[in-house]
Design a binder for these strands. Structure first.
Length: 758
RNA sequence: UGGGGUAUCGCCAAGCGGUAAGGCACUAGUUUUUGGUACUGGCAUUCGGGGGUUCGAAUCCCUCUACCCCAUCCA
C-alpha cells in the first residue's frame, strides 16, 4: 500500500471508527459474460485489497441476472483471474441467481407497499413515456393498477404465462425526476430463456438496479464499490434499500474511475471484436489486456498488483501510460530471473586465431542481483553475434564491434575485427576476427579497453528456438477499432539461437535475454522440438532512444486557449439590489454581485444589516460563509440567524476576534445556533494582540525550526507563512495574525548570522 | 438543453486555510563485462480560466470553460 490513503480507504476507516459497521465486507461482482481484463484486476485489487487491509472479507459474486449473455465458461475465467492474482474468496463464491427467490419476495413486498407496478406498455411506448433529459416523462396508465392486480400479474409473469416483453415490473418513483434513472425504473422483465445455473425455473429475471443492491444487502456488504458510470444508479440503490425498510445495517455504494490504458482497448465489445475477427489468436493472446493474455505473455501477478497499487484510486477519468505497467513487470523480473544469451538475428563470427573449444563458467545473475546460480557456456572458433552488434560505418557514440573497435564477448574474450565478408549483394555474411588470449573474463591481463560487452552463442552447441516478439496491439494512443491495429504487433523469429543450458537445464520459465528483454517459455506451444519464448517486455533502451530522437523533429504543442463564456444578465430586481449595494453601501462589485443574484442571500443580508450597520463586514460573511450553508439548505433550516451574523461582524469590526477565529465561531454557529458572543466567551477565543505575549511563542517556534529559518534566510520567503501558521497553532489560533506576521518577519531578520550582519 | 461527476507536471496521483508529497516518463551525472540495474541530482513561484474573501487560498465564495456519465426490457 502506498503511504497516502485513497478516498475509499478514508471512507472505510471513518465508518469503522464511527462504528457504522463492525466488519468491512466488500465484493467483486462481475457479470460472467466475458473474459476479465486488467480493469477487472483493478477492481479485484480494490475490493479484496480493502477487505484484507481492514481485516474484513471480500465475496466473489457472479452477477448473473441476464441469462441470454452469460455462461459458465466465463465464471471459470473470472475465478482463475482472482486466484491467479493471489486472492482467496474461501467459501464465499456467490451467484445473484441463488438469490432469485429472495429477490422475488422483495419485489412482492414492494408491490404490496404500492411502490411497484406491472406495466404493459411496449418498448416503444415506454421510451416515449420516459421523456427526455430536459422534459419530464409521463406515467403509464398501467401504474393505476391495484395492488391485487399487480400481485396477480406479477405471479403470472413468474409462472410463464406471458410472452417476452409483454409486461415488466417497475418501481413507482417519479416520472419527472431530473435523474432519468429514477423515472420508474424496470425491476423485472420476462425472459423465457435458459439460465446457465438456474435452468428453466424462472421466466422473469431481475434487472441490475434491483438485484445488485439487494444482493449486497443479503450478503451483508458494507461498502459496495463500483465504477463511475453507476453514479446515477446510486439513487435507485438507495431508494430500493430504504423503501424496503430493511433491518440495518445496509450497504452504501461508492464509485471510482475505471482503468484506461493507452494503446489498448478495455471494452468487452472491442475485445470480443478483436478475438472474433481473428486479429488475435484468442482470449489469451499475449497482446490482449486480458488477465489470460498477461498470464500467457509472462506477466507476474505481483507486477499487475503493483501496477494497480501505483495508479491509485480516484474519481477523475484517466488514461494511464502503458510505460507504467511495463515498468512494473521489468522491476519485478529484474531481481527474480536468470540472465541468458539468445541471438535473435545471427551474424556468423569466425575467430581465426582460436582452436579447439572450452567451457566457460557464467553466473545466471549479475552482481547486483542477490541470487546464486551458474551455468556452463561452451565457447569455440565459430560463434554467432547479433547482426546489430557490428557496424562497418558506426554512428558517433556506437559502443559495439566495428572494424576499428574491439568488443568483449560477455563472459568470454575480447575480439577485434579482421575482415568483413560480404555476398554478391553486398550483405555482410561473416566477420573474421582475432581474439585476445589474455582478455578472458575474470582474468583479464590484456589491458585492452572496450566500450561494451555483447551477447553471443557458440555455433555448434546453440539451440534453435522460436521467439515471439510482441509489441503494442494498437498504433494509436486512443484506438477506436480494428482499423487502428498495429500491423507489427507480432513478429515471429523462427531461427533464434539460444545458449544450450536454457533448454537442457531449464533453470526457470522466465528469463532475461541479455541486453534484449524479458521472455517467457510459452505455456501452450513450447515443446522439446521447438521451444517457444514470448517477449514479455523489452529492457529500457537508452541507445535506441538516442538514435530515434535524432531522426525525430519536435512537434509543436499549442497551448489551449480558454474561452470566456457570457454571464447571464441580471433581472431588474437583482440589478436594483446590485446598484444599491455598490453605490449606497459601497460594497465591492463582486461581493455585491454574489449577493444581488441570490434572493436568499440578499434577503438575509438586508436583515443582518438592520441589526448592525456594518455593510462591508457583513457582506463578506454572507457572500462567503452563509452562501456555503445556503447551497445545501434553505434559510429556514439554518441554525443561525441574520442577527447573529450581525453580532459576529461587530466582534470582527471591534477586533475582539480575528477573521480566522470568526470562521471557527461561524462553524460552531452552524451546528449549535449559539450566539457568537457566547461561543467566544465559553471557548476563550478573544484574540491576543499584545506583542509581549506573542513574542516568546515566536522565539520558541524559531528555536525549534532552525532548518526552516536557514531556508527562509536563504531567500525562501514562502516560509513566512509556515512560521505564522506555527505560532497561530501554538496559540490555538488566538494570536492576532497581523501582529504575528509583522513580528515574525522582524524576528526572523534578527537571525541573520553575525558574519553577514557585519 | 435537465441531472450527476471530474479538472493539481507529458501520464497517474497526494493535498481538506499555513513550505505544492510520491510513482512513471523525461533529463544530467556516478557505478557497471547488460547502452540493463543501482545510486545522486534536475524536472509545478503554481493547481482549468477570471474575479472575490483572508495577514495568508490548490483548499472558502462567485463566475466562466472543458471533458465524462444518464433517455437498453444490459451490467
Amino acid at each position: 500500500m502506498s503511504e497516502s490513503k485513497d478516498f475509499l480507504r478514508s471512507i472505510v476507516e471513518e465508518d469503522l471508527k464511527s462504528g457504522k459497521y463492525r466488519e468491512i465486507v466488500t465484493r467483486f461482482p462481475p457479470e460472467p459474460n466475458g473474459f476479465p481484463h486488467i480493469g477487472h484486476a483493478k477492481s479485484i485489487a480494490i475490493n479484496f485489497g480493502i477487505a484484507r487491509d481492514y481485516h474484513g472479507h471480500c465475496n466473489l459474486r457472479m452477477d448473473d441476472t441476464n441469462p441470454t449473455t452469460e455462461d459458465t465458461k466465463y465464471v471459470e475465467a473470472l475465478k482463475d483471474a482472482v486466484d491467479w492474482l493471489g486472492f482467496d474468496w474461501g467459501e464465499r463464491v456467490y451467484f445473484t441467481s441463488d438469490y432469485f427467490p429472495k429477490l422475488y419476495d422483495y419485489a412482492v413486498k414492494l408491490i404490496k407497499m404500492g411502490k411497484a407496478y406491472v406495466d404493459s406498455l411496449n418498448e416503444e411506448e415506454m421510451r416515449a413515456h420516459r421523456g427526455t433529459v430536459t422534459e419530464a416523462g409521463k406515467r403509464s396508465i398501467f401504474a393505476e393498477r391495484s395492488v391485487e392486480e399487480n400481485l396477480d400479474l406479477f405471479e403470472r409473469m413468474k409462472n410463464g404465462e406471458f410472452k417476452d416483453g409483454s409486461h415488466v415490473l417497475r418501481a413507482k418513483i417519479d416520472m419527472s425526476a431530473a435523474n432519468m434513472k429514477m423515472r420508474d425504473p424496470l425491476l423485472y422483465r420476462i425472459r423465457h430463456a435458459h439460465h446457465f445455473r438456474a435452468g428453466d425455473t424462472w421466466s422473469i429475471y431481475p434487472m441490475y438496479d434491483f438485484a445488485h443492491c439487494l444482493s449486497d444487502y443479503i450478503e451483508g456488504i458494507s461498502h459496495s464499490l463500483c465504477t463511475l458510470e453507476f453514479e446515477n444508479n446510486r439513487d435507485i440503490y438507495d431508494w430500493v434499500l430504504d423503501t424496503l425498510d430493511l433491518e440495518p445495517p445496509r450497504p452504501y455504494q461508492y464509485e471510482f474511475a475505471r482503468l484506461g490504458i493507452n494503446y489498448t482497448v478495455m471494452s468487452k465489445r472491442k475485445l470480443l471484436e478483436l478475438v472474433e475477427s481473428g486479429q488475435v489468436s484468442g482470449w489469451d493472446d499475449p497482446r490482449l489486456p486480458t488477465i489470460a493474455g498477461y498470464k500467457r505473455r509472462g506477466y507476474t501477478p505481483e507486477s499487475i498488483l503493483t501496477f494497480c497499487d501505483q495508479i491509485g484510486i480516484a474519481k477523475a477519468n484517466s488514461m494511464v501510460d502503458v510505460a507504467q505497467l511495463e515498468f512494473c513487470i521489468r522491476d519485478d523480473l529484474n531481481t527474480k530471473v536468470p540472465r541468458v544469451m539468445c541471438v535473435l538475428d545471427p551474424l556468423k563470427i569466425t575467430i581465426e586465431n582460436y582452436e579447439g573449444s572450452e567451457i566457460l563458467d557464467a553466473s545466471y545473475y549479475p552482481e547486483d542481483v542477490p541470487k546464486e546460480g551458474t551455468r556452463k557456456l561452451p565457447f569455440s572458433k565459430e560463434i554467432y553475434i547479433e547482426r546489430d552488434d557490428f557496424n562497418e560505418n558506426p554512428p558517433k557514440g556506437y559502443f559495439r564491434l566495428t572494424p576499428e573497435q574491439p568488443v568483449r564477448l560477455k563472459h568470454g574474450y575480447i575480439i577485434s575485427c579482421k575482415e568483413v565478408i560480404k555476398d554478391a549483394q553486398g550483405e555482410i555474411v561473416e566477420i573474421k576476427v582475432h581474439y585476445h588470449p589474455e582478455s578472458k573474463s575474470g582474468s583479464d591481463s590484456s589491458g585492452i579497453k572496450v566500450k561494451s560487452a555483447i551477447h553471443w552463442v557458440s555455433a555448434a552447441e546453440a539451440k534453435r528456438v522460436e521467439v515471439r516478439l510482441y509489441d503494442r496491439l494498437f498504433k494509436e494512443e486512443t484506438p477506436e477499432g480494428l482499423e487502428d491495429v498495429n500491423p507489427d504487433s507480432l513478429k515471429i523469429i523462427k531461427n533464434a539461437l539460444i545458449e544450450p543450458s536454457v533448454i537442457t537445464q531449464k533453470p526457470d520459465e522466465r528469463f532475461q535475454f541479455e541486453r534484449q528483454g524479458y521472455f517467457y517459455a510459452d505455456p501452450v506451444d513450447y515443446s522439446e522440438e521447438t521451444p517457444v519464448f514470448n517477449k514479455i517486455v523489452g529492457l529500457k533502451d537508452s541507445w535506441g532512444k538516442k538514435k530515434k530522437k535524432r531522426s525525430e523533429t519536435a512537434k509543436p504543442q499549442a497551448k489551449k486557449v480558454q474561452i470566456d463564456g457570457e454571464v447571464a444578465a441580471m433581472s431588474a430586481q437583482e440589478q436594483a439590489h446590485f446598484d444599491r449595494y455598490t453605490a449606497e453601501l459601497e460594497l465591492n462589485p463582486e461581493v455585491a454581485n454574489t449577493l444581488a443574484r441570490d434572493a436568499q442571500l440578499s434577503t438575509f443580508y438586508d436583515e443582518a444589516l438592520r441589526a448592525n450597520h456594518s455593510p462591508v463586514t457583513i457582506a463578506n460573511i454572507v457572500s462567503n460563509e452563509v452562501a456555503r450553508e445556503l447551497k445545501e439548505n434553505q434559510v429556514a433550516a439554518l441554525q443561525f440567524s441574520a442577527a447573529q451574523i450581525a453580532q459576529l461582524a461587530e466582534m470582527i469590526d471591534d477586533e475582539t476576534i480575528s477573521s480566522k477565529i470568526a470562521k471557527r465561531v461561524f462553524e460552531e454557529m452552524v451546528i449549535s445556533g449559539e450566539d457568537p458572543k457566547q461561543i467566544v466567551e465559553s471557548k476563550g477565543l478573544i484574540q491576543i494582540s499584545d506583542p509581549v505575549k506573542i513574542a516568546p511563542i515566536i522565539d520558541e517556534v524559531i528555536a525549534k525550526n532552525p532548518d526552516n529559518v536557514a531556508k527562509f534566510l536563504a531567500g525562501n520567503t514562502k516560509l513566512l507563512g509556515f512560521f505564522v501558521g506555527q505560532v497561530l497553532k501554538n496559540t490555538g489560533g488566538k494570536a492576532n495574525p497581523k501582529v504575528v506576521n509583522e513580528l515574525v518577519a522582524k524576528k526572523l531578520n534578527e537571525h541573520i548570522p553575525e558574519p553577514e550582519r557585519c
